[in-house]
Design a binder for these strands. Structure first.
Lengths: 209, 209, 209, 209
DNA sequence: AATGAATGAGGATTCATTCAT
DNA sequence: AATGAATGAATCCTCATTCAT
């Protein structure tokens, strides 16, 4: 089914990808019909099936390419920065930039998580992101920059906090990225550094584990 | 449409709620048909519409009642604890307990966020949760326990980190709650305390600990 | 299925008949569900099926009883009037009175005509009415009061004009019965008397009056 | 929803309109399912919804187009006839022709009157027909050809008589149009001319009003 | 007599996908 | 490459009717 596409064909294909992503994000995957997508573009239904195997296929492609795109940006932003914590900061800031630019995609991955056939690939994509962060964290621990803890867990905490802030303030709200980034970075780095104790300091002696 | 229900009727109704939640969570809202729900219960299709206006209505009810249930548990856990940071810790721990018990519900709110008709109520539910946390944070700031910062943003960071950890380790993984709770609490409290700086401390050498 | 009914039972039964007739007339037969009927009366569904075999059965009974009721009134009005044309006038006036009183029933017979299972009985009812009129007309012709013509056809013309006036001015409009009756009687008697010619009198000059 | 239709598409659409009208007329609107319509045509269910928004929509279109069609014929028959009474006669004769040709449509408007959503448009259609007749009657009154009376009421009486004759002798019976037309025209013109008295001439003095 | 509960066939409608042109 | 037309399984929902109590 891989077609050789003319430049014009590639443009068409991208146009469909973009429009579909927009509609899926706005109304949801299921409530958006193939008919609506092609109608919005003012083309016949045949066009859609010329470029994509199926609606599901299209959605998977949107998922994959957006996760790749985000990762590319993160890596470009990190460059060859030697300080692992600084790398994390740069990654967070780059992510937030990307999230702002592609805020409509939030809903897509949210949704993908809720149906098994999509959740699988979503999990793979996420694993890559978590891996990246985990590597930085391990290095920071090795350097003694942050206390030893399960790095994967920290990575998830970090990613969770960042995404949620992004969703709230860049997608639903419209707060300047830098402001969100400052809070995110501050919170996350604080969390990484302070993570030794499992409870409120001082209210009672920290539980040793 | 409010019906007077006999005890038997109430039981049936609850049975449908539970089974539907399970199926929605497992396969997704759209891929789960009303027919499947009633078939699973071994009853006729009419039964569903005797107890619920529509599939959508049922879903909204699941959403609402689960968010209420969670909040009830949080408040019970917090009790009249005077220390605001300790209240947050207790809230996080209670939430994680609840998440473990109701892990299948994760997908439901994930999904709800992706379609406007559901997103509306989801946002309202979430606002309540964020408000609760925000109140504690303000108090902690007034007491000088944590640095001054936008409390709502911190609340979102906190909630995001907690939920993501829960989803990862309680839903997809099967890590003991306490362990996850310790990391979550540590990360969050660290994040709250350390939030003053907007970047990596230390182009200068890392603070020894 | 003929039940022996207590007085209370008979009242209940009539209550259902009345309420159903009202709802059928207002919304149509199909759009009115048995559930709505019993809900309006504030009783359970069992009540309905205690008194009637089926929805269809109920409808047929309404049809039959209203046509009987109308005929009773007509005959009472006519009494033993010897003049056949006068009998027709009295019949028309009585009918219009009845139509005003039971205007909601118009839609029921309209509807009944559109589905075979009901049309059959409707036709029988109508045949009785047409027969009555036809008898008067034959007598009037025999007496030389009106020109000879197919009496059944005249009867239908008469009935059609009367009913349509009733529907328009007593059901949709709210004109005094007497006024409608005067026009109806005038038109109908004129029609009966003038019926000799099959076209416009007067390529020749219009008769001055 | 306006589609651009190819000639083939237009033919299909018309085919559906015709078949549906036939079935609705024969069995009634509700007892005729969309499935039956498309099955009769030997096409898939989707075809129906390609050409019509809904079953209701289709029905409304049948109603509208048939009333337009009838009116077109009436006007063509009347041409520029100067005599208003002659115009009425021509209109009646043309209508009866049309009724014979489209006798199956009788039930449709009968039915339409019984449900509010359809009754509305039916009333509008009817108003046009009554208006046409009313104009002729006013002219005839102005010319002194017929006695002064409420022209709209006469119009309704006329229309009622004509339609009822048509329904009885062209739809249920199978009498030659001309015969029915002669009776109808005779009756109606008689009715118009004789309308001065509100009661039986001679049985007793006419009631003055 | 009466109720709430249950049944399940049937109905309108949607929609991903395929086809003929 | 592209279009309008067609397919038909699947979906949500309704409703007359029956049942258990």
């Amino acid at each position: 089914m891989k077609r050789k596409l003319t430049p014009r064909g590639r443009a068409r294909r991208q146009q469909i990808l973009d429009e579909a992503a927009r509609l899926f994000a706005e109304r949801g995957y299921h409530p958006t019909s193939v008919a609506e997508i092609v109608d919005t573009l003012g083309v016949g239904k045949g066009v859609f099936y010329w470029y994509f195997e199926s609606k599901e296929d299209l959605f998977l492609e949107i998922l994959a390419s957006s996760s790749q795109d985000l990762r590319r940006l993160q890596q470009a932003a990190i460059g060859d920065e030697p300080d692992p914590l600084r790398r994390i900061e740069l990654g967070i800031r780059a992510s937030l930039e990307w999230f702002r630019e592609h805020r409509h995609l939030f809903n897509l991955s949210q949704f993908a998580a809720t149906e098994p056939r999509f959740a699988v690939v979503l999990r793979q994509n996420d694993a890559v992101a978590i891996d990246d962060v985990t590597r930085h964290l391990k290095e920071a621990m090795a350097d003694g920059r942050i206390p030893d803890q399960d790095p994967a867990m920290l990575a998830h905490a970090l990613v969770g906090a960042t995404r949620h802030l992004a969703r709230t303030y860049l997608y639903h709200g419209d707060v300047p990225v830098d402001l969100v980034a400052d809070v995110a970075v501050g919170f996350v780095l604080g969390g990484l550094l302070g993570g030794t104790t499992g409870g409120v300091r001082g209210a009672e002696p920290p539980q040793a584990r």
